Simulated assay, not measured.
Amino acid sequence: MSSFKSASPILAKAYDTALLDLDGVVYIGEDAVPGVIGALNQAHDEFGMTLTCVTNNASRSPQRVAQHLQELGLEVTAEDVVTSAQAGAAELAKLIPPGSNVFVLGSKDLAREVELVGLIPSHDDSQIYDAMIQGYWPDMPFRMLEFAASVLQTGVPWVATNMDMTIPTPTGVAPGNGTMVTALGETVNRKPTLVAGKPETPLMQQSIDRTKAKRPIVIGDRLDTDIHGANNVGIDSLLVLSGVTTIEEILQAPIELRPTYLAWDASAVLTAQNGTEIKDQITTCGGWKVVAGDLLGQGDALDAVTAVTVAHWNGEISLDSALLALAGIGLEVR
């Protein structure tokens, strides 16, 4: 894994499997990101690239996720979908005996995944529980949160499907599962026993194992989950700017959050990727270069972002100068 340094041939030729995040990558809300569905289908049909959908959203079953994707035109089935609910349930089954009672602070689809691994899920607040699993649940009654706190105070294992603090919506960002996990943790003064979703390894590893991928690439819009998750399991990644990550956040990314490639959106699977060249303290990408703290050149603005980012990471241009340079060529940096 080398962040923005190495050029690549067409990604769909270089990698056999795309591990696709969904929110902000394939769709936002109910609608597809323009140009992405056709490109992904072409990557599969023309180059044989396996499309595997890897989502931290635990509120919907693989069948429901696949149905939504099919309605958008993506050629996938439920077998091509791996969710943090599946990964969380699988990890929970390693912590407690078969037939154990599990309090599910989450949707019916999350409860179903718990049942499929041989455990007994319930929302009943009159039972005694052996464990708790928590996932994104937009319709959660507040009384369930209160009962969950009482369950956690007994010391039972607690699995969180993910720690996403926000989720993208058509009107902006909204609170994610991580906000509720954090609230509960602060209330009862403990942390989850295990987190299944990205950036932790269970969900990503389960996705790789299921597809038997030899050369997988993660395609995501979040540094803290998708890119960090790829780096945690040692595979390459493509960060797309169609979701929640800003150019300023890329510039400030620590090494563990840096992607291999950068693109405007996931249709980039059909294109070759420019690398950066550093020589005599000049950082070049495509038609752009950073010389003595100045951005010079012309061409695809994405190459300008790449050149400036690498130059900033190497201490050749300050953050303020980098932001001003990129804003100066018409880019929204925040």
Rank of each mutant, 00 (worst) to 15 (best):
G118V: 08
Y261Q: 11
A266W: 01
G73K: 10
T169N: 12
E113M: 09
G73A: 06
D124K: 04
G135K: 04
D294K: 14
G297T: 14
A18P: 03
S84K: 07
Q273G: 05
T245P: 01
V195Y: 01
A272K: 04
V65I: 15
P138E: 11
G299I: 13
Q298I: 11
S100Q: 07
I37P: 07
A39G: 02
G286S: 14
E79M: 07
L11N: 00
D21R: 06
A43L: 00
E146G: 05
V233K: 12
D125Q: 10
G287R: 03
G35W: 05
I278H: 12
T171A: 00
Q252N: 09
T276A: 11
M140C: 15
D236P: 06
L296H: 11
E200T: 02
I208R: 08
M165G: 06
A292S: 14
T179V: 13
V76Q: 00
W264Q: 08
V117D: 06
V269G: 02
I219E: 03
T246F: 12
G293V: 08
A266N: 06
E46K: 04
V26C: 00
V305A: 14
P254D: 15
N232Y: 01
G287P: 01
K212E: 06
I167M: 08
T187I: 09
V333Y: 10
R215I: 05
A58M: 11
G197L: 13
G99I: 07
G328M: 11
V65L: 07
G229H: 13
T211L: 06
V195K: 03
M163K: 07
G178K: 06
P98Q: 04
L239E: 12
A325I: 14
G229C: 12
D226F: 03
Y136D: 03
I317F: 13
D23G: 10
L194Q: 01
V233T: 10
